[in-house]
Each structure stands twice: as C-alpha cells, then as structure tokens.
C-alpha cells in the first residue's frame, strides 16, 4: 500500500461521511417542526459536516499552503456560524416568534409574555 492510496481512501471516507451529515442536515430542515428546531439541523452542516469535508480535502492537498487555506476556511466558518445563527434566532425571538411543540407546561409559561 503506498501513501497516495491511503490518502485517497481517507479522503473518500471523510468526504462521504461529511456528505452524509450534510444530507441529514437537509433532511432535518424538512422534518423538524418549527424555525428554532431547524436551527439545530443547520448546526450539523455548520460544524461536523464542513469539518469532515474540509479535512478530507486537506488529505488530498498534503502539507502545502492549500491545507493552510482549508484550515483558515474552517476557522472562519467556525467563528462566524454561531454569530449568524444567533442573529437569526435573536431576530426571530424579538419579532415575537414563539417556539412550537414545547411541552404543555412550558408552552403556557411562554404564551403570555410579549417580548
């Protein structure tokens, strides 16, 4: 077994797991009930899915500047995606969108207050 083949196999495994998680994230966007639950599905594609795909690509690039750039892409995603999710969720909350499908006693306690 030469190193190229090992790198290719590792890439294939990592990228296919990443794509699988991406599909699950997309499925979650349709399956989950309301806006706030769908945010969690996006959380999958933002974190582990992008990490697996980018590290799979890094195995193809080897120890070059391309790998450094892939790491930077991941870091930028890692730091900006929670900010984007928070601003979406916070705006939805401020406009008065209430989470659905909460347990009954919880749903009652959040029905009343207008934020």
């Amino acid at each position: 077994m030469n190193l190229d083949l090992i790198a290719d196999i590792t890439t294939a495994i990592l990228v296919s797991f990443g794509c699988f998680l991406g599909i699950i994230g997309g499925l979650g966007m349709h399956r989950l009930g309301d806006f706030y639950s769908r945010l969690h599905a996006v959380g999958i594609t933002d974190t582990l899915c992008s990490f697996l795909i980018l590290s799979g690509l890094a195995f193809q690039a080897g120890l070059t500047l391309v790998t450094v750039k892939l790491i930077l892409v991941f870091l930028f995603l890692f730091f900006t995606s929670p900010t984007a999710s928070f601003s979406l969720a916070n705006n939805a909350w401020n406009w008065g969108l209430k989470p659905e499908n909460l347990p009954v006693e919880l749903a009652e306690s959040y029905e009343g207050d207008d934020s």
């Binding site: 969690h40 959380g43 995606s81 900010t83 928070f86 939805a92 909350w93 989470p99």
Partner: peptide, 26 residues
C-alpha cells in the same frame, strides 16, 4: 459561553435579558 452553546448542535442561544440567557434545545 453563548457562542459555545450555539456552536453545539441541539442547543441554540436566542436572547439575553436581565442576566439570563434564553436557550432552545432539541
């Protein structure tokens, strides 16, 4: 703290009010 909660799938911070953080979890 709030970003670490958002970054973990399954929990997302929504709102900060009077020293409390509102978090939605799945």
């Amino acid at each position: 703290y709030a970003n670490a909660i958002t970054l973990t799938p399954g929990s997302a911070s929504l709102h900060i009010e009077d020293g409390y953080l509102f978090v939605h979890t799945i």
